[in-house]
Computed example of a mutant assay.
Amino acid sequence: MLQLFFAVAFSAVPLTLYVPPIRSLNLFVETVEDVLRQSTLYTLRAYPRIRLAISRIFNSIFHLSR
């Protein structure tokens, strides 16, 4: 039973290194929101172009396979 306890304890300890403290999590969330807010303009402008390029690629692939 003691071996099982140590196995579970030592396997869970590295997972705590990946979880940031709560006080720095707020700054991280704020930074992510800021990046998303700034990139929205470029994403909305590029989306129709990307869609057109992908549709042209698929059309050429399926056109050649006929």
Rank of each mutant, 00 (worst) to 15 (best):
F10M: 14
T40K: 09
N26K: 11
A46F: 05
S65C: 06
T31R: 13
L15N: 01
R37W: 06
L17Q: 05
F28R: 13
R51W: 06
F28D: 04
A9V: 09
P20M: 02
L15M: 12
R51I: 14
P14C: 02
R56N: 14
N59Y: 04
L17K: 02
F5I: 09
A7E: 07
R23V: 09
S65V: 13
P48Y: 03
A7Y: 06
A53H: 02
P48L: 03
R37L: 04
V35Y: 06
S60D: 06
Y47G: 02
S55A: 11
L64M: 09
I50F: 07
L2Y: 15
Y42G: 04
L15G: 01
R56A: 10
L17R: 06
S55D: 05
F28W: 08
Q38P: 01
R23L: 08
T40H: 05
F58N: 10
P48E: 00
R49D: 03
E33R: 14
F5W: 08
L4G: 01
Q38D: 11
S65K: 05
S55Y: 11
M1Y: 12
F62S: 06
V32C: 09
V35C: 08
L41I: 07
A9T: 10
S60P: 00
A46G: 02
L27W: 09
N26T: 12
Y47S: 07
V35N: 03
E30V: 13
Y42F: 14
A7K: 10
T31C: 05
T16S: 03
N26I: 09
Q38C: 03
M1L: 12
L4M: 14
L64E: 08
Y18W: 03
A12D: 00
Y42T: 08
D34P: 02
R23G: 03
P14M: 02
V35W: 11
S55K: 13
N26C: 02
Y18R: 13
R23I: 04
A53N: 04
P48Q: 01
V19W: 02
L64W: 12
L36T: 00
T31I: 09
S39Y: 06
E30L: 13
N59L: 05
L4H: 07
E30K: 12
L36M: 14
R49M: 09
A46D: 04
L64H: 14
L25F: 13
I22A: 07
N26A: 15
P21T: 05
T31V: 07
V13W: 08
L52H: 13
Y42S: 15
L25E: 00
S39P: 01
V32T: 07
V29W: 04
Y18L: 12
Y47E: 04
L27T: 14
F58I: 11
T43G: 03
L15C: 05
L17A: 08
S60Y: 13
Q3K: 14
V13P: 01
R23P: 00
L25D: 01
S60H: 07
T40N: 08
I54V: 15
F6H: 15
L17I: 02
V8P: 00
Q3F: 09
V29G: 01
A46V: 06
F5V: 10
N59K: 15
E30I: 10
E33G: 03
R45E: 02
L27V: 11
Y47T: 12
R37E: 04
P14T: 00
